[in-house]
Structures are given as C-alpha cells and as structure tokens.
C-alpha cells in the first residue's frame, strides 16, 4: 500500500530526501494514484487528514495533528524535533555517554500558538532521550498575550536536569545546550546555518521525508497515554 505523509511543505527539505516522493495538492489527486513505490506528500490540513485517515497503516501525520483531534491507534505520527537532522546528531552525541549526566536546556521560539501540542511532543521526544522524568514544574505567562513564555523545569533523576522553554513570538528558532561531563553541545538555529542573506530571512528549520519515515512511531495506547500524561503536566497536573 502506498505511503502518505502529511506535513508542512515549507518544512520539507527536498535536497535531503532520497525517498521517491510526489507532492499532491488534494485528496482527489491522491485517489487516482496507487503506486507503492512512491511516497505521496500532502499538506497537513484538517480536511486532508480527515480524508486520508482511513488508510491508517501507511499514513504519517505530525504529532501535533494527532494531539489536536485524531487520537487513532494504528496511525503513524512523527515529532518534528525528532525529524530534524541537528537533533538526530545531538541524540547520537548524548547517547554515546553510558549514563548521560548533565544539564539540558532547550528553547523553542514559535510563531503560532500550537504551543501546547508542540510542547507535549517535545517533552515526549526529550524524555525518550533523557529518561522518564521524576518531577516536572511549569511556569507560564498569560498565553493569550503575545509574546508569551513557558518555563518547564524537569528532573530526570540519576544526574540529569532540564529547562525546556517556549516563547510564542513572531519567528521560529530552536536553541539547545547540553552541558555534560567534559562534553558541551550547543545549537542555535539562528547561528548554525549555511546560507545567510541580507535580503532573505533565515531558512526555516527543515527535515527530509526520509527522516519522517525513519523516526515516525506507530500510535498505540501506551504512546497516547504518555502524551496525555505530558499534556496534563503542562496544565499543572502531577506526574504519574
């Protein structure tokens, strides 16, 4: 059965994509195609997701869309953080340490207020790397006012603590720091870019379709429970 990936076109890095992909503009176009060799890419609108969600086995949607309305077991979801090549490298570097100990700082600046679902997905992704958090504390400014800021203090126990921060502002940026034992990793999407132009804004953070397919997770009850757990925590709940 053909694979269908839903996402944001502007986030897609075609140069880094090896997978044979075709971008289709509508679900109608999709219904006329059934080539198993090809991965079809469709914009992640509510309408498109609803239309393709029947073919659960081979549909890949952003985790933020699942959290918003489609908690369907059997779908594949992908977390944008996990799909970025810089994060793959960070994960590789930190995972090289036997029992990672250190201070992890992660900060996202986002343009739109999908803060909650994005944040939940990030907590899931980061806990996959750093372990199950023992304690989480959240402080937020008034989210109805832009800019807004959220600070999450996480204790992973065993020697790792983290500050995860979100600013809803007028641009996209990710900053990350790992202060480990004799190893410091720093990333800033504003600075670590190859192309800098005085006329064009910084290129958006992007990932390949290959990265989406490689990092996607099949939705099961356990995954949904963990995401719901994190979602509750952000709203002031207690970790279970």
């Amino acid at each position: 059965m053909m694979k269908i990936v839903l996402g944001s076109l502007e986030k897609l890095d075609f140069r880094a994509t090896v997978e044979n992909i075709r971008v289709v503009e509508s679900v109608e176009q999709l219904s006329k195609k059934n080539n198993e060799e090809i991965t079809y890419f469709l914009t992640e609108t509510e309408e498109n997701i609803n239309a393709v969600v029947r073919n659960q086995e081979h549909v890949y949607i952003p985790a933020t869309s699942l959290l918003a309305s489609h908690q369907s077991i059997g779908l594949h979801i992908y977390f944008d953080l996990e799909s970025y090549p810089f994060y793959q490298k960070v994960k590789e570097m930190i995972s090289k340490e036997d029992k990672p100990k250190g201070v992890f700082r992660f900060r996202r600046t986002v343009q739109h207020n999908r803060n909650h679902s994005l944040l939940t997905g990030d907590l899931y992704t980061l806990s996959s790397l750093l372990g199950k958090p023992q304690d989480i504390r959240v402080k937020q400014t008034d989210l109805s006012v832009t800019p807004s800021h959220t600070i999450i203090l996480m204790n992973f126990g065993g020697g790792t603590m983290a500050h995860i921060e979100y600013t809803v502002s007028d641009r996209e940026r990710i900053e990350l720091e790992w202060s480990g034992i004799k190893k410091i990793i720093e990333f800033d999407s504003d600075q670590m870019v190859s192309i800098q132009s005085t006329r064009k804004p910084t290129q958006p953070l992007a990932y390949s379709v290959d990265a989406i397919l490689a990092s996607a997770r099949k939705v099961d009850q356990e995954l949904i429970d963990r995401l719901n757990d994190f979602s509750r925590l952000i709203n002031g709940g207690v970790y279970s």
């Binding site: 402080k139 203090l153 603590m161 410091i184």
Partner: peptide, 24 residues
C-alpha cells in the same frame, strides 16, 4: 556544581536561570 532555577516575580514576570561550574 549545577543548578536550574525558575523564578516568579511579584508582578508575574517569570525567569529561568542556569548556574553551574560546568565549564572545563
């Protein structure tokens, strides 16, 4: 040799602080 602190000011401003002797 390491600490992460979160503050809230009396007027609601929030703040994060990373204090450490982590630099080798």
């Amino acid at each position: 040799d390491a600490g992460l602190l979160t503050f809230e000011f009396a007027n609601g401003v929030v703040a994060s602080h990373d204090a450490s002797w982590s630099r080798f």
